[in-house]
Design a binder for these strands. Structure first.
Lengths: 349, 349
DNA sequence: CTGAAAGCGCTAACAT
DNA sequence: ATGTTAGCGCTTTCAG
């Protein structure tokens, strides 16, 4: 009895049928107006729009998609941790591209957990996302295969997938590290330590390979001062480098595999009032403020996210194409300052 | 002719009907298995699961939701810029809460544009999100009203909405700033400058009010050294404080309304080799590395996002409750270092 | 415990 | 140019 013509039932959302009744037209005419089909008589269109506004009609995107079977205008983005600037920058760049295609992003964090990654991917496939952008955590992405074959493309960022064919957007980890270590060698360093971790198998592997290449060229045994951390706490990097320095014949230069490792190392340097020639992979916003000079491998993180999203949308437009691998270039840049008074400060944005 | 029993048509996704046929059961039994209804004979359930695996069946979450009309297990998050750590931290915290409710987040950036905010909100309503978390940009949120009345709740972060009733999670901008400025006064400062901006009407208004309150208590005229920037480039803050310092009777202490302003001011200090007692709203990860001592107003950004998400899910569970306003407390903390050699470095995580 | 029929809100294909 | 009918893939009655 509450469902009278005044449509005052607060819980129920008006449908196209309600609008049609209110405007005195057929359901289909309402549908046409909602879809901006031009072949609708002006006065009818106006009446329909009036009814829509009056009832507060909002089209049900879910239902529309179900029947048309077209796109959901949604893509999934699975990263490792949205609170980390590297990943949030990727998310922001991908969101900006998706915007241009009127597509929304479902962003989820796997927290470096392969099982969680898999759950999230399957959930997003069930939601019929048009495509997926993934920073993979596990070493088995074969569960993507069925859906990729059925036409839901995936693009992988930072590490390539294992067990399925897909587009990738990667950093040039190897070249970046090789050039960085070459620089240390050119400066005359022979005792060059490396601190990497075991958490990021692919990228760290590439960086180690780049360092090994440069060291090998110079006939240096890279194994003498090599630490592989099992934790991503900067503290553990500090401890590792402390051990190196306390051992006989300590290194004179040090390559840090990422910026968290660098932070731990710098802290240890400051604690010991020691200087080492520092070098690291990853630039970051406040690297200019570090209290020690460091040469870092920089790259355009936004570009990584942008590229991946562009590749995804390109593939959505032409599904047949061969998979491709894009590599984002790296460069060397000097950061950090001598903690002496009177130095010029680094530029700020 | 290609649609034979081997299900080899690559483009078509198997539906429950396909699974039912393959398993020799009815559609409904498949539905029950998919929904883990316990009252299914074990052997049937097994056959169905076998068929599902074989066909690579993935349930269509979109269709399931359409008929049941229940929740989409999706909430919307509208922030200003995902690349900004403040907002990405909120997004990460909200995502973590949503996780616990098996709910996915659609995250979108409004870019401080009220019109864009409105478009995004309406789009998300059309997608029938279960609720919305919004960092508002405009000063008119009345377009939320219809949907809020129909039972799709919204929670506002950072600034309260205008034109609709909704839960809010806010920072204690006023108290934080008041306590900070009181501290400057207690240290004996009388010439206290303030640099704020006009981009964030609500929060900056609150901060100005807090400063005014502290200055008023001490009988200080806050208007003498007050700059209001119309840009968020740190550079413009540097210029503004430069003008203050060049004017007769310059301030001895300075309150910066946010961290970007602080960065511009610190750069100007370093350029001029000048010292001022610095204070600012917003702590940030690398504040300990600033080459000048600064007292900042800190707060738990994750808590802001967490609170908002908790409020949203609480309301989804009990829609009738009164709207509530949660305030995240602030505290004062000393950051930055004297750029002299031999100082202890700030602690790292 | 299982199945057949109806229907969610919308769009596609066909009339008219 | 408008309306009618069917049906997307699933869940919900309601019968068996």
């Amino acid at each position: 009895m509450t469902d009278q013509a005044d449509g005052s039932d607060p819980g129920r959302r008006p449908t196209m049928v309600d609008v049609a009744r209110a405007a005195g037209v057929s359901l289909k005419t309402v549908s046409r107006v909602a879809n901006e089909v031009p072949t609708v008589r002006a006065d009818l269109a106006e009446r329909v729009q009036g009814a829509m506004a009056e009832l507060g009609f909002k089209r049900n995107h879910v239902a529309a998609n179900l029947r048309s079977g077209r796109t959901t205008a949604t893509i999934g983005l699975i990263i490792r941790d949205l609170a980390n600037p590297f990943y949030s920058t990727i998310a922001a760049a991908a969101t900006a591209v998706a915007e241009r295609f009127d597509t929304r992003l479902i962003t989820a964090s796997s927290g470096w957990d392969p099982a969680r990654e898999r759950e999230l991917v399957l959930d997003l496939f069930e939601r019929r996302v048009d495509g997926l952008i993934v920073v993979p955590s596990g070493d088995d992405q074969s569960y993507f295969r069925t859906e990729i074959d059925r036409g839901t493309p995936a693009v992988f960022i930072d590490s390539p997938p294992d067990g399925c064919r897909a587009d990738t957007a990667l950093l040039d980890n190897r070249t970046g590290t090789r050039d960085l270590v070459r620089r240390l060698i050119a400066e005359g360093h022979r005792g060059i330590g490396t601190v990497t971790d075991t958490l990021n198998a692919y990228t760290m592997g590439e960086r180690r390979a780049g360092a090994r290449e440069a060291l090998g060229e110079a006939g240096i045994d890279g194994g003498r001062h090599a630490a592989r951390l099992h934790s991503d706490r900067p503290r553990s990097a500090g401890d590792a480098v402390g051990a190196m320095l306390d051992a006989p014949d300590p290194p004179t230069a040090l390559f840090c595999g990422n910026n968290r490792i660098l932070l731990g190392v710098v802290e240890e340097m400051v604690r010991r009032r020691t200087r080492l020639r520092l070098a690291a992979f990853d630039d970051f916003e406040f690297a200019p403020l570090l209290p020690r000079p460091v040469t870092v491998v920089g790259y355009d993180t936004r570009e990584l996210g942008r590229l991946a999203a562009e590749m995804l949308f390109r593939r959505l437009e032409s599904p047949g194409a061969e998979t491709s691998n894009h590599v984002v270039p790296t460069y060397l840049v000097d950061r950090g300052t001598e903690p002496a008074p009177g130095r010029r400060s680094p530029p700020l944005p």
